[in-house]
Structures are given as structure tokens and as C-alpha cells.
């Protein structure tokens, strides 16, 4: 996916709930590139335009798992706290 598609898919999957400032995607992508979590490759879009396509790497996937479990733990904790009230 290239940047625009990423932004769109975040928006679509979250049913328009998560509507971030789209541009901030790019600094985030740079940081992931540095860490080696994604790779970038230039390709052409359906409209025949040059675009940079990002792909999750193996270490990116591993990082995702780490982040997910971290996130789930936090969410779980929050949920428990809220339910206890």
C-alpha cells in the first residue's frame, strides 16, 4: 500500500471513527523505515502514477505482536477498572 491507501484504509476499517491528520502518517512511516519494520519500494498505481509502496517486514510483524499484546494488556486493565466501578 502507498501512503494514501494506508490513510484511506485506516479510515475505512475504523468506520470513519479514526480520522487522523493524514500527513502525520509520513513521519511515522519514516520512523518505521529506520527501525526496519517496513520496507518501501517505488511502483505505479492503477492510475499509472509513481507511488511508494510500503510493506511490513518480518521484524515489523514481530513488533506488531509485541505492541498488540502490550495494547491488549492495557485495554484489559482499563476495562477491568471501568467494570469495577
Amino acid at each position: 500500500m502507498h501512503g494514501y491507501e494506508v490513510a484511506n484504509s485506516i479510515q475505512r476499517i475504523s468506520d470513519d471513527i479514526l480520522e487522523v491528520e493524514e500527513g502525520s502518517l509520513y513521519p511515522a512511516l519514516q520512523r518505521m523505515l529506520i527501525k526496519g519494520w517496513v520496507t518501501a519500494k517505488w511502483g505505479t498505481t492503477a492510475g499509472n502514477r509513481r507511488a511508494r509502496y510500503y510493506q511490513l517486514t518480518a521484524s515489523g510483524r514481530k513488533q506488531l505482536d509485541v505492541e498488540m499484546s502490550q495494547f491488549e494488556r492495557v485495554i484489559g486493565a482499563i476495562t477491568r477498572v471501568i467494570e469495577a466501578v
Partner: peptide, 17 residues
């Protein structure tokens, strides 16, 4: 508007490195 401050974001992207 949806994209945000392009110049600033470009700079942020660079600084990240």
C-alpha cells in the same frame, strides 16, 4: 486541511532520521 502542515511534516520526517 486533512493532510495537515506539509512543510512541518516534511521536516518531521527528515528529523526522524
Amino acid at each position: 486541511r486533512r493532510f495537515g502542515n506539509a512543510t512541518y511534516l516534511k521536516e518531521e520526517s527528515r528529523i526522524a532520521w
